[in-house]
Design a protein around this nucleic acid. Sequence first.
DNA 1: CGTATTCCTTACGTCAACGTAAAGTTCCCC
DNA 2: GGGGAACTTTACGTTGACGTAAGGAATACG
Lengths: 135, 135
Amino acid sequence: MADTDRLMTIREMCDTYGVTPRTLRFYEAKELLAPHREGQKRLFTRRDRARLTLILRGKRFGFSLEEIRQLLELYNMGDQQQTQLARTFAIAQERLADMERQRDELNAAIADLAEQIGEVAKTLADMAEGKNAAE
Amino acid sequence: MADTDRLMTIREMCDTYGVTPRTLRFYEAKELLAPHREGQKRLFTRRDRARLTLILRGKRFGFSLEEIRQLLELYNMGDQQQTQLARTFAIAQERLADMERQRDELNAAIADLAEQIGEVAKTLADMAEGKNAAE
DNA sequence: CGTATTCCTTACGTCAACGTAAAGTTCCCC
DNA sequence: GGGGAACTTTACGTTGACGTAAGGAATACG
C-alpha cells in the first residue's frame, strides 16, 4: 500500500501521465488538482493521480476543464448537503445523456466513413487491375 | 427536386443549421465550403449543405476543421489520380481507427459515469428515507 | 427619395488551454 | 563554495475557431 500512497514529484507525474509541468500547475490554478507542499515544492497524492486520470479521460471526450471540474465534484461527494448533491447529480445525468448521444452519432459516422472507405477501396482495386477509372 | 436543389441565402443557412454568418464565411475561407455567387452574395447549394452537415458532425467528435477538410476530400473523390486517392484513403483509415478508439473510450467512460451516478442515486435515496449519510 | 434590411469585406478582439521565456529558490555534489 | 539540477513564480505569447465592430454596396419598401 506504500506504493499507491506514494507522493510523487511533478516530474514523476509528467513522466507517468505524459503531460508537462505547466499543465499540472495550470490544473492546480484551475482547482482541478490540489497537491501537497513540501516547502514550496508540489507533492502529488494518490487522490491527485486519480483525478488526473479522470481529467485526461474527460478531455478526450471534448469536455472543457470547467465541465470536468464539475464532474470531479461528483466523484468527490460522499456525504454533502443533499441540495448540492442533487444538483451535481443532475449535471452528471445530463453529461451522461450527452455522451450517449455522442456515442450514437459516432457510431453512425463510423458506419458512414467505413462505407466510403469501402468504395474507395474498390476503386483502388480496379485501378490496380489496370482498369481506367474513366471507363 | 426543385426543393433539395434550391439555393439558399446565408441567412437561410444560418437558421437551418444554427450557425452564424461569420461561421459560414469562415468555413469558406478555409475552403470547406464553396458557395456560388450572385453578384457578391453567397448562394449555398445542396452540396454545400451536405458538406456543412458533415462539418458539424465532425466537430462534435473533436475533429479540427483541417482534419474535416481532409475527410471531405474523401467524400468527394470519384475518380482522381491514384496517388492522391491512395493518400486520402490512408488518412481516412487512420481517422476511422481514431473514431473507433474514441467510441471505445466513450463507452468505458459512459459505464464509469453511470456507475457513479448509481451510487449517488443510492445516497440520495437513503437521505430521502431520512437516514443520515454520516451514520 | 430616404432609410431599412441584408448582404459584403477588412480587421482587430476573445477565450481556452496551454507554451515559453525570465528570474529567483533549494538542495546536492565535489 | 561554486555550479547545476529540479523546482518555483510571474507574465507575456500562441493557436484554433470564431465574435464583433466599422464602413460600404445592393435591393426593397413606404
